[in-house]
Design a protein around this nucleic acid. Structure first.
Lengths: 340, 340
DNA sequence: CTGAAAGCGCTAACAC
DNA sequence: GTGTTAGCGCTTTCAG
């Protein structure tokens, strides 16, 4: 592979001049420039970005560290990030922590060692400390999805509470009376906020809060199935359920299908997270859509802002959700609430 | 940020010794080693991988270039790659070409400039040439999903033809008589192979091939919808359909729902690609499952093999599919084929 | 406007 | 077993 010296020699100029041509900095006499370009062409020269980065003390890489396992969320967010990345010449390296703090820490170590230009992370460990090494190096960090208490970092979140409240209020308005909530580990801000939204809606409607109707489980499909089946075994089972993420919603739907519970008449359901298949299950599923793609874009945007102005205070934004009403929450005629 | 020299000074040793300790190469007297480690600790030293890579002329990055847009396929494959990557200390940078050859080329340029350690790519342009720059630099390349004619590169494909044949044969065996096929642009090897499998099954069963029953469209949801609706408008519409990818399957299902065509009695359907929601649509969808995760793992594995033995001939493997039979292709009683 | 030269931080011969 | 030293390929002052 030819180096900048080979090009310089062939074009009978100094490497500095070649560098100027390649990077379009400083002024170079047109005839020299074209001589250089010819040499580059002739040798098929390609600048070595590793060397450039070492010299410039910069990097053209962002790290995207994901804890979530949902394929759609993940894909949409990373697309958002990559899109902005492409505009500003950044590559995106992807890391999946599977929600394991160990893995998360390892990936952060790697990001530090690589001196990456920025990190977007949905934290697995919701305690601040993990990000320290990054911050020490002044590497811009933006958290997404989940909040971090201590953060001196940017964050772009979703209005989970508001979204959950809307969903629950909608179920109420549709005539359901005993509404359950399946959510995740309350140590996760998303799970806690979505539960809070659920409670908020009940309160606002003057419906008493019944802890028996709330299940916290892991954010997986199996958890959703289990939680739903427990709810059905209650003495006074619910007549509707708000499920706080899409994987648990899959599980819950499956459980309802297995038990032969008919939606939306015997049981109304609203799930968090929009998916291509939401329209296709029958009845079509009402969902709380997150602006996933935007999430990625905004986070990436913050990274570039922060790189421009490292001094400024970190930005924190919260993006709105959208309730998409379909059939699973809109009974033709409300069945009377079951009494035992 | 402290450098290796700072550590050396503090530990009163030479930078070479620090390097030896950090990389665990060569022998270092234990007492020195611990002095070095203390200094590392004290200064919170973190090796600069950029400098190391420049010196060693290596890189710890793989590039994964994707043309496909399907979130599940994409996620599963990249997980497979990342998993192996983590085992061997490689980071994975992700690129999405949206099937645009321009973007693909740009990403390849970047991979070259970064001197990455390997590239996994599902080619957007199915002509070989694009990979030249990579091969010139002896960067190991493995193609996935799609085949490249000219390839001096490794490849891991899926037995598309066989999978499609099984799917079609299954529809035949279930009693369907007029089976249609919705596939993608035939310039894509996957689309062509899946069509070939369909034809193969018909032939094997002695069923005449009717071009009117074959639709080629883009691999998207809208294309599937359109194709399905055209098929329904035929003088003699099909009584079953094999759809060559998941996005088009979504579209086709939607169309069938809109038209009130009942599955599986009026219309049987089998889709390529397995998804979490396949069980949940009703009736549950019969699919041809690709070993997506394996695809990624095997491709990554090839990258490491190839790095070990750059001389050897490129490996080419083809992974089997699995037919997952559900309700959408298994009518209770076969309705008599419609006559016009 | 161009060239010489000094590093960026690290590793690997090569001496000792 | 350890230290010295010369680069990896590039950019960027600083002179000219």
């Amino acid at each position: 592979m030819p180096t900048i010296y080979d090009v310089a020699k062939l074009a009978s100029v100094s490497p500095a001049t070649v560098s100027r041509v390649v990077n379009q900095r400083g002024n170079v006499r047109p005839d020299m420039a074209s001589r250089v370009n010819e040499a580059i062409e002739a040798l098929d020269y390609r600048p070595n970005v590793v060397a450039r980065n070492l010299r410039r003390q910069t990097s053209a890489v962002w790290t995207l560290i994901f804890s979530d396992i949902d394929a759609f969320h993940f894909t949409a967010v990373s697309r958002g990030v990559m899109e902005i990345g492409q505009d500003v010449g950044k590559s995106v390296v992807l890391c999946n922590t599977d929600d394991e703090p160990d893995k998360e820490q390892r990936y952060i170590e790697v990001a530090v060692a690589d001196r990456v230009a920025g990190v977007v992370i949905s934290p697995a460990s919701e305690s601040g400390g993990v990000l320290e090494p990054l911050l020490e190096l002044d590497i811009p960090v933006v958290t997404i999805d989940r909040d971090l208490p201590s953060s001196a970092v940017g964050s772009v979140l979703v209005e989970n509470e508001c979204g959950a409240e809307q969903a629950t209020a909608h179920l109420l308005a549709s005539g359901y009376g005993r509404i359950a909530c399946i959510t995740g580990d309350l140590a996760l801000s998303t799970a806690a906020q979505r539960l809070a939204g659920y409670r908020g809606a009940l309160e606002a409607a003057g419906v008493p809060y019944d802890p028996a109707l709330v299940r916290t489980t892991d954010y997986r499909e199996a958890g959703g199935y289990r939680a739903m089946s427990q709810l059905l075994e209650l003495d006074r089972p619910p007549d509707a359920v708000f499920v706080a993420n899409s994987q648990m919603t899959l599980g819950a739907l499956e459980c309802l299908a297995d038990r032969g519970v008919s939606i939306p008449d015997e049981m109304g359901i609203v799930g968090f997270d929009e998916h291509p298949w939401a329209r296709l299950v029958s009845p079509a599923l009402t969902t709380v859509a997150q602006p996933t793609y935007e999430l990625g874009r905004v986070a990436a945007q913050m990274l570039v802002e922060r790189a421009k102005d490292p001094g400024g205070p970190p930005t924190r934004v919260s993006l709105p959700t959208e309730l998409i009403v379909r059939e699973s929450s809109t009974p033709r005629r409300r069945a009377p609430a079951r009494q035992r």
